[in-house]
Design a protein around this nucleic acid. Structure first.
Lengths: 106, 106
DNA sequence: TAGCATCTCCTACATCTGTAGTAGGGTGAG
DNA sequence: CTCACCCTACTACAGATGTAGGAGATGCTA
């Protein structure tokens, strides 16, 4: 399905994958911030679920390890998140903008 | 706790409550868009959970019905959502902005 | 080739979320 | 006073999410 719904952790995994371009379970797991880093098999579970959602795919194999790559783009995913957030703002971008501005980085 | 984490449906309920200022379960339920409107008791369950999270409180009673009011502000809640979204954008507001702009309303 | 390190695959499970039914108490209209 | 109606409180449950262990396959190293 196009642009599946991803959970927070799934999004964290995707973020890591987008950064690496392509990666193994271990690479993804280790690239996650040590603080609150999930266990190896947890990452593995996420990748399996992401695969089921067709958000990632097994690109190839290196030795006995699968190498994953993103199927959905970061851009499309972010757009989806923004759209979803907008529904909570009643479609009004103005308040969202002001919060963004107040959020510092500008 | 300050700014509890709210689910989608909980946010929809809060939105209705913020609009009314104060409302009974029935008022909230009926103010939700008919399309996909949850059952009366579903709204009730949400309010109970929101109360547990200290996001709303029972302000008073009219006859045998509880009248709820929001404890957390819409503003603080929206800010929290924006901040959370920002973490998925690696803290960069720029891409978020561009998505917003492309989202039409501007 | 024997073992250890490493992977995958499968299974499990607690918690959260959405969804709602049921039982029983309070209320107001007649 | 009575009873139909509305409200609350409690319970239930399926699906999503986060979290991870264990068993067994596989690959590298001495």
């Amino acid at each position: 399905m196009p642009q599946p719904k991803l959970s927070r952790l799934e999004l964290r995994i995707m973020e890591a994958l987008w950064k690496h371009g392509t990666a193994s379970v271990r690479e993804i797991q280790e690239s996650l911030p040590a603080r609150g880093r999930p266990a190896y098999t947890t990452v593995q579970t996420m990748l399996t679920r992401l695969e089921a959602k067709e958000a990632v795919r097994r690109a190839r194999k290196i030795s006995n390890a699968h190498i994953y790559e993103a199927v959905i783009t970061r851009d499309a995913t972010q757009r989806r998140l923004v759209d979803e957030l907008l529904t909570f703002f009643g479609g009004r971008t103005a308040p969202l903008m002001s919060h963004l501005i107040e959020s510092g980085q500008l």
